[in-house]
Design a protein around this nucleic acid. Structure first.
Length: 429
RNA sequence: GCCGUCGUAGCUCAGUCGGUAGAGCGUCCGCCUGUUAAGCGGAAGGUCAACGGUUCGAACCCGUUCGACGGCGCCA
């Protein structure tokens, strides 16, 4: 048994081959059936002629509809009438399982594709996205390994909010209430005192009622935290990691990227260092371009698009005003109105993919900020402990994996970057 | 939370002025030995999202509800 990719790329011409997979398209013309077969690696046309195969096999081929599981043996032949110029001329055609009429046909609405998600993920586009995502993850994991980071496993059930607590999913936890994690950051910060450099990949849950092409209620969060690293060092990690993920995707999935409309060469060109633009400068740029960009206002989707739509490489926006960011970021001595933090914006207008900062080490400052926000200190006691016992400068960030995939795969909506998207309006299938 | 669009055959949609419900694709049957999500002939397939109202008469006008999608804000 061979994969379709092996059959098409090897030296199988005029040789006997055997494949198995699912019928992708089928047409018949009396005594000849054209069945295009799909497996996880590609598609190829097979031709089944009456008289060339057994009558039973011919009847099977005639009756098998789209998505029927089949096993075909035959000879690979060159033929310019075949899509792609190669086809398998069958000597045997076995149906492993006939398919009922497939619900997804030529015309599809968004609603149908979401309702039939468990079937739609068989599509070539979705398959390509999954492979690109896997390659990106492998590139990232290897980069962390080569740079002496320890992969750790924080909890996903938590009793404390690291962001706005209205955005947490509540769960029943025995006889009390707990929350689904929206960030592993506090746990990673705890772990740097032993491992020094840690990273993790976990699901994060956000109960924001966001209805946009950039939000999921459940997404995969790639987070890193490292001791002895300042904000600039934090950005170096980000750009090297992103470049490593892009390189692996370009190396392992050139065909998948092409299918999705992404030229792998544009990814290979992206190398550190990425441009750094202070928040203040970004606001000036926006004002010159007709935006009402006042100091202290956040960058919305439109602003992020304006800043990056003509760029081919990601852009760091650094030193945001304190009122826009959470309490645990390190103050910026060069401009006390701001933090030592960065957001990384994807190019081509795809928006924010990473948020990170150097962390505050002064408990008094953090307590003051929490009180200003009206937060109860009780939830943060263990976190504040971390600054009492040998606190060190440290930094970290969180990367929204699906946001990065959306950019890399040129997707219109983040839901296509994950097989079973969880959004405000949908938990099925 | 706010703004907007849409619910008609399995799917994608049309449906004029309020007057007995339409097409293409898919399915089923028949024909076809080079098709490119083929072609030709035939058949089956409908709670017009739900409920209420106006009217002699409602897919169409009005109201309510439900569902889906698009956008904003917030975030990764």
């Amino acid at each position: 048994m061979q994969s379709i990719k092996q059959v098409l790329s090897g030296d199988s011409l005029d040789m006997p081959v055997r494949i198995r997979g699912w019928i992708y398209r089928t047409r018949s013309s009396g005594g000849i059936v054209f069945a295009v077969i799909r497996d996880s690696t590609g598609i190829v046309q097979t031709t089944v002629k009456k008289g060339t195969v057994s009558d039973g096999d011919f009847e099977s081929a005639s009756n098998a509809g789209i998505e029927s599981a089949v096993e075909v043996q035959g000879t690979l032949a060159e033929d310019n009438r075949a899509p792609g110029g190669l086809e398998i001329r069958a000597s045997g055609f076995k149906v492993v399982a006939f398919s009922e009429p497939f619900p997804i046909t030529e015309y599809q609405s968004t609603e149908l594709l979401l309702d039939q998600r468990h079937l739609w993920i068989r599509s070539r586009e979705q398959t390509a996205v999954m492979r690109v995502k896997a390659a990106m993850l492998r590139g990232g994991r290897e980069w962390f390994h080569e740079n002496d980071y320890v992969e750790v496993t924080p909890p996903m059930i938590t009793g404390v909010a690291s962001e706005d607590s209205t955005q947490l999913f509540q769960i029943k936890y025995f006889d009390r209430i707990a929350f689904l994690s929206q960030s592993a950051q506090f746990y990673l910060e705890s772990l740097i005192f032993s491992c020094e450099r840690v990273w993790t990949l976990t699901p994060s849950f956000r109960a924001e009622k966001s209805r946009t092409p950039r939000h999921l209620a459940e997404y995969w969060h790639l987070e890193m935290e490292a001791a002895w690293v300042d904000n600039e060092g934090n950005m170096k990690v980000q750009e090297e990691l992103v470049a490593a993920m892009l390189e692996c995707a370009a190396d392992e999935c050139p065909a998948e990227l092409q299918l999705l409309g992404r030229d792998p060469a544009t990814l290979r060109k992206i190398a550190p260092p990425f441009d750094r633009m202070p928040y203040a400068e970004a606001m000036e740029y926006l004002q010159k371009n007709g935006f009402d960009a006042l100091w202290g206002s956040d960058l919305g989707a439109v602003e992020e698009r304006a800043l990056t739509k003509d760029r081919e490489t990601p852009l760091f926006i650094v030193n945001y005003p304190k009122e826009l960011k959470p309490f645990y970021m390190k103050g910026n001595p060069d401009d006390p109105r701001t933090y030592k933090n960065s957001d990384l914006l994807a190019p081509e207008g795809y928006g924010e993919i990473i948020g990170g900062s150097e962390r505050e080490t002064d408990n008094a400052l953090m307590i003051e900020r929490l009180k200003d926000k009206g937060e109860s200190l009780d939830n943060y006691q263990w976190y504040l402990d971390l600054r009492k016992y040998g606190s060190v400068p440290h930094s970290g960030f969180g990367l929204g994996l699906e946001r990065m995939v959306t950019w890399v795969c040129k997707l219109e909506h983040i839901r296509d970057s994950i097989p079973f998207p969880r959004t405000v309006a949908r938990v099925y299938p």
